[in-house]
Every structure is written in C-alpha cells, then in structure tokens.
Design a protein around this nucleic acid. Structure first.
Lengths: 218, 218
DNA sequence: TTTCTGACTTTTTTAATTAATTAGTCAAAT
DNA sequence: ATTTGACTAATTAATTAAAAAAGTCAGAAA
C-alpha cells in the first residue's frame, strides 16, 4: 500500500521534471520550435520515455500550461489578499500581469497561420476555464471592496468582466496591431503597462464610492 | 485657363469613379482578392487606363482608404455636433463605429501572414494620421463637455487616448482572440457593441462631474 | 495633347513534388 | 514498471513548375 503510494509519487516527480524541462524550452523558443528530442536530451533520457509519461506533444504542452496557470492564479490570490486597497490591488495586478507576460509570452506565440487555439476545442476550453477562474478571483476581490465601502454598489462580476476585456484588449492591440513584431520588446511591455495603469485610474474613478474612501479617509 | 480647370475636374471625376468601383470590390472581397482587371472590367475600361490614373494598386488602395476615412471623420464630427450630451455623444460614437466596421471590415482583413501594414512605412503613417485626427476630434468633444461642466477637470487628450485604446482593444480582443473567424458575423459585432457600451458607462462615471450634471439637471 | 487600348514583360501567387525533420510506436532490455 | 534503440507515419520545409496578376509601352482614338 505504502509502496504503491511511493511509486505514484515518484511517477509524479518524474512527470514534474519533464514538465520543468519542457517549460524551459517552450518559454524560450515557443512550442512549435521545440522538439521532443530536445526535451529528452536536456533530461538525458530517450524520447520514447517522454511518450511513456505523456501521450503526445500537445498533452505535454497542456500540462506545462496548466502548471504555469496554477502559478498565475496563485499569484492573483496572493496579490488580492495582500492588497491595502482595491485600487492598489488592481495596480499590483497590472504589474504582475506584465511581469508574467514578459516571462512566458513565448508560449503564446503562434507560428505563421498555424495557431492551435483556433480550431482546437481543447484549447478553447482551456482558455475558457482560465478566464472563468480569473474572473471569479477578480469578482470576489471587487465584491470585498464593495462590502468594505470602497466601491459603490456595482455588479461586481459585470465590472470584472469589463476590466478583463479591457486589459486583454490593450495587450493584444499593442502587441499585434500597433507593433507587429513577433517577439515583443521591453518598450512594448512598458507601453502596455502605462496604458493599463491609466485605464485602471479612470476605471477606478468610475466604480469607487464617492461618499466613502479618499474623501473620508482623513 | 477655364478649360484647364475643367480638364482637371474631369480627371478628378474619373479618378473618383475608379475609386468607387475599387471600393465596391475591396469592401466585398478585400484588397488581395481583388484584381486590377476586375476593377477595369466593372468600369468597362482597360486595365492600362487604371495605371494611367494611379501609379500602382497599392496607391489606388490608399486613395480608397482616404476616401472612406474622410467619411469616417466627417461622421464623427456630425455625431459630436448633434450630441445632446457627452454621454449620448459617446454612445452614438459606438453605434457608428460598429456600423462602420460592419460595412468596411473587409478592407482590414489580411490574407494569411501577408499583411501590408507590418513593414510598410506608408501604412504606418496612414494609420498614425487617422489616429491623430480621431484623437483631436474626441479631445475637442471632451474639452467642450468639460467647459460645459458635464465633465470634471480632466486632461481631455489623455482621456481621449485611453478611450480610443479601450475601444480598439475590445474590438481586437473579440475579433482576433475570442472568435478567430476570418469573416466576423453579426453576433460578434453585437457582442462588441454591448461590451463597448458597458465600458463607456463605467468610463463616463469616472470622468463626469459629480457636482454638476444629472444631480443638478432638475 | 490628352485619353485610352491591346499586346507585351515582369513579378507574385499558387500548386505540385520532393527532401528533411519531427512526431509517435513497439519489441525487447533493464 | 521503467527505459531504450530502431523503426514508421505524419508534418514541415525547400524546390520547382505553372498560373495569375501586376505593371509597361508603342501606338490608336478622341
């Protein structure tokens, strides 16, 4: 029984090693430019062994994605927990999103017109699930601020949705419309951050409670 | 002298005819899928004649673009002139942008990875100029509302920029991220419109003058 | 002289073929 | 149960040939 459990743990540890190695390659060169052979070589194992632990390349990629998404959501929670106010929480959220994007944007780069996410149901569901998770975190955060009296009586979920749409929109707009460089540079990230901060500022003015907050805080 | 002038006018009229014929094709099939021969055939003229009036296809495309951009900006002005309030003006702006997008989105569709706008300096400048024109119109509109007392003392240009970023962002996000269909459908346009309206709502709350406006309007 | 055309050349796209690389499998070894 | 080398199948990249479209020009028509 205990032996059985140890085995499972070891299997998981091995999978984790593979995921970490794959993540390194994927986040550096992107998924299409990473071969299963390279991942295997990095770990000094045979390619066949990768297929012992993962059914195919795309499944490995998804597990890698799940791995970093877990980190992404965990950080979200932390930021919201430690936020001194709703406004500061939103600002921290932006900083984090930019830093996270810098670190992992290669995972998002699609080679030519060959983009997995278009027709793949699995990708659609994956993104959908991520969005929902993020949405509920932000909604909860806004809800808390509303109960606090920092925000006025708004529909938290509706506001959270709008907020997410705007942030994603600005990102895409800057990356894929204004400066279509396949590999984004620091300047672009900085521009996006600045724009997001400005948006958050006006946005916050629109949802904050004018009877409470800064006016009363003295 | 007068003869010379008539000649010039006639030349312009001919160019206009070509532009209109080209616009029909371009807005229906997109620029890459429209051939110079087709445009010539539509007008029952020879292809060589097109090259008598326009140096090349891309120049024709730009003149077509300038033609509809003029319409775009003209409508902007009209909307802002006739707006009963800043908020209603912004709402009308959204309705117009959606309608305009429905009509001319084909001009924007890029074939595969072959997208003119990426490396073409002319395209960059064109878009830049359009943005600036739109920006100054919106800025002026906000400035007017500020002087009216409808808006609080904000930096009108800054706010206009943010507004434009947000609207473009939502558009791009919905079109190219959420539902990557090359030819957008009515449902998508409707979704975008709804999102924009929600954003405008919060946004307006953030910039309106709380001492004036709705509170005092009775 | 200005506007226009048919016949032409050059450049770009598209399609088809082939070569090379990579994903994925499996019998056998540890 | 885990691991591998040697294998096949599927994709991707490179090459080439064919087709289509862009663009030119000498000269006709107005």
């Amino acid at each position: 029984m205990i032996v059985q459990k140890d085995k499972i743990e070891e299997l998981d540890r091995k999978k984790e090693q593979i995921i970490e190695a794959a993540l390194k390659r994927f986040s550096h060169f992107g998924i299409p430019k990473t071969t299963m052979n390279e991942i295997a070589e990095d770990l000094s194992i045979s390619k066949a062994l990768l297929y012992y632990y993962f059914p195919d390349k795309i499944s490995l990629a998804y597990e890698v994605a799940e791995f970093i998404i877990a980190e992404f959501l965990k950080q979200h929670e932390l930021i919201f927990e430690n936020a001194a106010s709703c406004f500061e929480g939103l600002q921290d959220l932006i900083s984090f999103r930019i830093a996270f994007g810098k670190k992992y944007f290669m995972l998002h780069i699609h080679d030519k017109q060959t983009d997995v996410s278009v027709h793949d149901v699995r990708a659609q569901q994956f993104i959908c699930s991520l969005r929902e998770n993020e949405l509920s975190l932000i909604t909860a955060f806004l809800e808390k601020a509303k109960q606090n009296g920092e925000l006025k009586a708004v529909d938290s979920q509706e506001i959270a949705k709008i907020l997410m749409d705007m942030l994603t929109g600005i990102w895409i707009c800057e990356m894929y419309v204004n400066h279509k460089t396949l590999i984004p540079n620091d300047q672009q990230f900085h521009t996006i951050k600045t724009k997001m901060e400005k948006i958050i500022h006006v946005f916050y003015e629109g949802i904050k409670n004018n009877n409470h907050g800064t006016a009363n805080s003295k």
